[in-house]
Design a binder for these strands. Structure first.
Lengths: 132, 132
DNA sequence: TTCTAGTTTATAACGATTCTAAAAAAGTGT
DNA sequence: ACACTTTTTTAGAATCGTTATAAACTAGAA
């Protein structure tokens, strides 16, 4: 299994559940956006196998901490995650409540002209809200 | 009262509670960020007067719909609002969990080079995460 | 004053997320 | 393979922000 190493290297035991979640998250052509609920359903369908919700939460947070997932800053009752962990931005379609990737190359360079004492910039994320 | 007109003009009845919330939100030198809970506490302290939580929620949402408040897109267990409704951006201090305004003039012009069919851009918001 | 629609209220309901404590599995050494 | 320790999984309970409910109240109009 190709994920065993990956997990071990980041100090996570390669358990059956984590490996299965890796499959669902990373064995795809394209990256995608999801909520915990989306993911739990996907697991059930795709693997015909239920993983406890608590485990899904734990795993997603563990993966996020290790940098294998990113949280998408957006106001919703549910938290959105992204399997695309490269620096990039998002459109948010307000009507359909859908997220669409917006690559950094598709946004001109962003200059932050204000500094905050004792702090450094960790990330710059753009959210473009769309309407009809 | 200066807010009676404002509320009437937007089709909201100028009730005692709404006027009081207006005072707390808009009778300030500077704009500020808040959660519903922050606001409820501020009302209790500042006006020595309790307004039902449900009313605070209703009012904040009504004001947001009318454009007197803005939601700030950020991942937190609570929803953040801003009394600064001009186009602007935010720093988010990850450690202190604090928001800081970042004016559009302090960010170079942002060019969105990707278009989504049948949709137009409603807003462009930048979130700059800060670490030590 | 009376009527009606809009508003407030306390409380219940809801739903996403986190906590808990026990069972299971993984890793380590023998 | 076995015993032992630590991590992980699990179901269910608990938490907490937010929304719904239904009754009491209020603003505005006739």
């Amino acid at each position: 299994m190709k994920y065993i190493e990956k997990l071990r290297n980041s100090g996570l035991r390669p358990t059956k559940q984590r490996l299965q979640i890796c499959e669902v998250l990373f064995d795809t052509e394209k990256t995608f956006h999801f909520t915990i609920n989306d993911l739990a359903n996907k697991i059930k369908k795709q693997l015909n196998n239920k993983i406890s919700l608590a485990t899904v939460y734990n795993t997603v947070h563990a993966f996020e901490k290790k940098g294998y997932l990113k949280q998408i800053p957006i106001n919703s009752n549910q938290t959105y995650f992204d399997t695309n962990v490269s620096d990039h931005h998002h459109f948010y379609d307000l009507k359909d409540e859908k997220l669409i990737d917006l690559e950094t190359s598709e946004v001109g360079p962003i200059k932050i002209l204000k500094q905050i004492d004792g702090k450094k910039i960790k990330s710059v994320e753009v959210l473009v809200k769309l309407e009809d």
